[in-house]
Design a protein around this nucleic acid. Structure first.
Lengths: 264, 264
DNA sequence: CGGATATTTGATGGCGCTCAAGGTTCGTGG
DNA sequence: CCACGAACCTTGAGCGCCATCAAATATCCG
């Protein structure tokens, strides 16, 4: 039904397209337009700052490959990671209505980012209103993720927060077609995880160890690092993880979990 | 230049209009349209839930009077307040692209909320593109506030967080025309403040006491409760508060603070 | 005045921070 | 192939910020 897909940097089929397809049905013309967005990106190597809090925003960024993080820093160096952008995620969507960044942007390891001007995106939205709708949904999802993160940092214990973050990343990577089965890539250092959850590096380490000792996950420390989920139901229960906030298409499952009927 | 303004519930001139004027110049027609939005609201008395996490969203809400909070709860009762909506703030702006709530909504004390259908808002946006732009800016500001809250909860100490929250509310109330001078209304109980900052009620109490003992604020405990800021520069320094993330119009002040020239 | 809600204060303890040192993995260049 | 440095992970010891529990006080409302 659909032809072979354009292959983006690092040889993965477009995660952005995949995510948009979760929200709307995409015509061939629209598919082509999306694929054109994810071209000619700038490659970065290590941890590199690509945008500064308060700086003018050059437009909208698309993460072609690698991971990017959004963070805010205090004057004495304390840092809070606001969110992670995975391949197919869009950076600075707010640039469409506000031309100043309110966060720092850093790459994590290798990453490829494409910048598109506000005008280009607005033309795209005019030509393809469906795409505008789908991408606005991505923005709503971002806010839902932010709320969930705030809940973690404010009210969940360390082991709950860490578990919840791992499950969120696993889920997002699957939705983007970047993870399958029980394993998923984990480029984040324990320091970065701590900065996302309001924890110290040391405590993230101890918490991961506990999760391993409980037989819930296995951490593969060889690069490229990865996580293997050994007991999904148990860690989901521990984290109180309900993936509905990540689903763009269908409404969230309002029934209690784990009560699917046998022959339905 | 501008005629007498329509007076909303509780006799305060439209805070929404005032905030929109910070972002764009408003024509008389637009002013009338905004004022029509803030009519015929439903009044609520105490702490009342007006929307549930995961429930279908009836449309967009406008806070005419009183305060509303957005929160998420864990199954065991722990609660995180995501943000506060003051008079003139808009609730569920995401309903325009996503028809499910991802937070609970509760009133704080007396409040009046008007619900407008998605269709009505979309018609408004079509008729007045400038208004659409200004209101999208309000949405961006919401995200900036959320990021700042995450920074507080994750990385600031209790005394820094509490100070920062107080300053944010003071500033927002001034922008909405609901506070002037050094005093501002404070309907939030210490429990609610704790739920917003990831702190216990007891610790919020002790922290407020410290701020009073340091001579930075005075808490008026008689209802309607209020806060008086006694030493704005000092508490702003303590909190690391930079109000640029709340300003919709002008770009943020990139120069170091407190260096205004004498005769300028 | 009585009941409900919110604030205040003390005592105690734990989760997670800090400091410090040693181990691992990996990239680079000899 | 090995040496070396950088970044990251690991583990222990000690402690502090803030949570929890409990009880008294204050404020408001009817």
């Amino acid at each position: 039904m659909v032809g072979p897909e354009h292959s983006t940097a690092f040889g993965v089929a477009s995660p952005l397209l995949r995510k948009i397809r979760a929200a709307i049905t995409v015509t061939d013309e629209e598919r082509y337009a999306i694929e054109m967005l994810e071209r000619d990106g700038t490659p970065f190597l290590g941890q590199t700052q690509i945008l500064a809090d308060g700086a003018p925003c050059r437009g909208v960024g698309i993460v072609e490959a690698g991971w990017v993080l959004r963070s805010k820093a205090l004057s004495d160096g304390r840092r809070q990671v606001i969110n992670f952008a995975l391949p197919g995620d869009i950076l600075c969507l707010d640039a469409l209505t506000f031309d100043r960044a309110y966060c720092d942007l850093w790459t994590i390891g290798r990453a490829v980012v494409t910048w598109r001007s506000v005008e280009e995106i607005e033309q795209l939205f005019t030509r393809f209103p469906h795409l505008a709708f789908a991408i606005r949904r991505l923005a709503v999802q971002e806010e839902a993720m932010l709320s969930e993160r705030l809940l973690s940092v404010g009210r969940r214990s360390a082991i709950e927060s860490v578990s919840h973050l791992l499950l969120e990343l696993w889920h997002r990577l699957m939705l983007a077609g970047l993870a399958g089965g029980r394993a998923f890539p984990m480029p984040l250092s324990q320091e970065v995880i701590g900065d996302a959850l309001g924890l110290s590096t040391v405590h993230v380490n101890r918490t991961l160890k506990v999760l391993e000792r409980k037989g819930l996950i296995r951490v593969d420390r060889h690069r490229p690092r990865s996580i293997i989920v050994l007991d999904a139901p148990r860690i989901e229960r521990l984290a109180g993880f309900k993936p509905s906030y990540l689903d763009l298409g269908s409404p969230p499952d309002l029934e209690p979990r784990g009560h699917r009927r046998a022959n339905a």
